[in-house]
């Protein structure tokens, strides 16, 4: 017996990242989470002066270094080698999180397991007890940044909606997500619920709604 899995429609991971990058204006201070959000930096041209922050205290992260030119003293939150762009600065960990928790980040882009229509985010634990839980800076970013955007696949690997009326996974932050970018759509999270901003090329509203476990409003 063979089962043909239908390849998810819509944007590739790179195209998802590029779509987020389009919405980041010059001058913003931005933190990118681990996973697909990290790819966003590749799609912001260096001529557009966006200041990327890394939790370990680096402001002004530049493009990844060419092989053989890495500075072993410069890594990002994902432990990958980085470069600094002109204008960069480095602070200690408490100051790095003071700028997150003090509301000085214009934007953080996080990966997600689930986002609920009240803006709750679940992205750090699935509630299974086998592996050691890890949270890193996700709760600080989720509670502290001026804007929290979530970049994730619209459904799980086995096809379950990630955009839901209430999160079933343990929460990361309460009521703070304002926008979701997926392979299928861009959705605003507002006091009155989910509002569809756009669908990905070749994807219609009905498809997005059928893969979303909450009402999608149209303007």
């Amino acid at each position: 017996m063979s089962i043909t899995m239908k390849k998810p429609a819509g944007r590739s991971r790179d195209a998802m990242a590029a779509r987020v990058a389009d919405d980041i204006p010059e001058g913003w201070v931005v933190n990118l989470g681990i996973g697909i959000p990290t790819l966003v930096a590749n799609h912001v041209p260096t001529t557009r002066e966006v200041i990327f922050h890394s939790e370990n205290g680096v402001l002004g992260v530049g493009p990844a270094p060419a092989e053989g030119t890495e500075d072993p003293w410069l890594i990002n939150a994902g432990k990958a080698y980085i470069t600094l762009r002109d204008g960069a600065s480095i602070v200690h960990q408490a100051d790095s999180f003071a700028l997150i928790r003090g509301g000085h980040l214009d934007l953080c882009v996080l990966g997600g397991y689930q986002v609920a229509e009240n803006g709750d985010l679940a992205n750090w634990a699935t509630g299974e007890n086998d592996a050691a839980p890890a949270v890193g800076g996700a709760m600080d970013l989720g509670a502290g940044a001026k804007r929290v955007w979530v970049l994730m696949e619209h459904v799980t690997k086995d096809g379950k909606p990630r955009i839901v009326s209430r999160c079933s996974y343990p929460l990361t932050a309460l009521g703070s997500v304002t926008r979701i970018y997926t392979n299928l759509a861009v959705i605003d999270v507002e006091p009155d619920g989910f509002f569809l901003r756009e669908t990905a090329p070749g994807v219609d509203f009905e498809t997005v709604q059928s893969l979303t476990d909450a009402v999608l409003h149209r303007r």
Partner: peptide, 24 residues
């Protein structure tokens, strides 16, 4: 760590990173 934790041989106090830094 993960192996020791799964076997119940080590305790974990998990703290959000900014809260960890600020508590220090």
């Amino acid at each position: 760590f993960v192996d020791l934790y799964r076997d119940g041989k080590i305790e974990l106090d998990l703290i959000p990173q900014g809260t960890l830094a600020e508590r220090i």
